[in-house]
Structures are given as C-alpha cells and as structure tokens.
Amino acid sequence: MIYRKDVNERSPLRVFERSIHGGLGRGNIGLVMSRAGVGKTAFLVDVALDDCMRGRKVLHVDTEHTAERVRQYYEEVFRSLAENMDREEREAIHVEIERNRMIHSFVGGSFHLDRLRQAMQYMKDHIDFVPGLIILDGYPQWEEFNADQLHESLDGIKQMARDTDTEVWLSAQGHREDERDELGVPLRLQPYLEYLSVVVRLVPESNQVRLQLIKDHDNPDLANLHIELDPKTLLLKWQ
C-alpha cells in the first residue's frame, strides 16, 4: 500500500465511508445523481482513484466515451490530487493506479451486461484481473429505457455485483423540470431505489457543490454529510 497514511485519513472519502456505515459493500449498488455538469463523473473517478491508491482493483466501464477519454479524465483528477507530492512519489502512485485500474468502454451503443460480464471473465482468465469495484457510467439509460427495461437492467447489475462480489457505482442525470420528493429524488427514479444500497445527490449551491446522502443502506437516519465538491475542479474538497 503506497498511499500515505496521513493522506489516506484526511481523504473526504474516509468521512464519506464512515457516514454510510463502512462503505457501499460488495454485492451492492451505489448511485450518484445530479444535473448535467455538476460532477457525477468526477465523483465516480474520485471514488475509483481512492480505491486504486489503496491497492484495490477497479474496473471503470463507460458506455459513451472512448477509453482514452476516460483515462484523460483520471489523469486530470490525479494531477490535482498529486499537486503536493514530489516527483518520485507521484510516479510511484501513478504506476500503482494504472496497475489497479482497467478502463473498458463500449462505444456505438454496443453495451450489454452480458458483454461486460464476458469481458470480466476474459480479464480474470487471461490476466488475472479481478476488480473489487466497478464504475458503470452511462448505464442504465434512465431516460430512454421504459420501466420494464430499467427493472431488468438494475436486476442484472445487482446479480452481477453479487456474482462477481463487487461494489458497483452508477450515475443518473436529473433535470430542472423533474418533479422531486422531499429529499430531492426525481419521482421517476423512486421505483428503482430498492435496488440501490447507497444514493447520493450532488447539490449545486452558490459557491460549492454539496454531497447529500439520500439513501444509506437501510438506516433510517441519514447522516448530514459535511462533504463538498470544489465547483471549479468538481473534486471532493479535503478538510
């Protein structure tokens, strides 16, 4: 484990983990939602980098952008994280991240859960890569799928998370015109909360973006997260 202990403990993701009672947990699905451009992908990359730096394997799946584009995103986020590290440390951590992360993108509408599971099987069989966390950005298509399709795909993801013993993080986009409940969840997403163990929402405020906890496993008392994102970099702010 190459990640410096002090850095590790100061990470906003440790705070987050404590708030949701020990993390998402293998076999479970987490969801981050926000309006466009508020920082969903940045949040997911933050979560992924945190795992990579702690020596855990991460599979980042994107159904829209090429693997190159996703990698650039990681590079940008890492650059600002590594700002205060010296060259040797930065390089060593960078290598560690690249070793622990696999980016797999499906472009041209070619994504299918079976294909993803097949790809994971190939990685396991041929290069012994077995992820503990899957970032699945861009699937399911909340707005294009009908209710049956959404139930089916979430069920499939849940099954995959259990079968492969992984944590899975998804994203969903909200809209200004969405009707919402008292927690700010768009009503159209409510029927699917049952599949999700943790749900967070990014709430843009005047000079920051606040992380709001909407679902925390089965805990009725939701912690008031004191975690914010920098509105410029869209990265989690360190305390």
Partner: peptide, 19 residues
C-alpha cells in the same frame, strides 16, 4: 482475453479497452 494476455506478458500496462 488473448490480446490482453499477449500484452501483459510483455510488461505491458493496459491503458484501456474500447469495444
């Protein structure tokens, strides 16, 4: 899978996969 294996055997670092 085969392609990944040939690259890893050559001290390769996988940058990404696009299907």
């Amino acid at each position: 899978g085969e392609i990944l294996a040939t690259l890893m055997q050559r001290r390769g670092m996988i940058v990404g996969t696009t299907e």
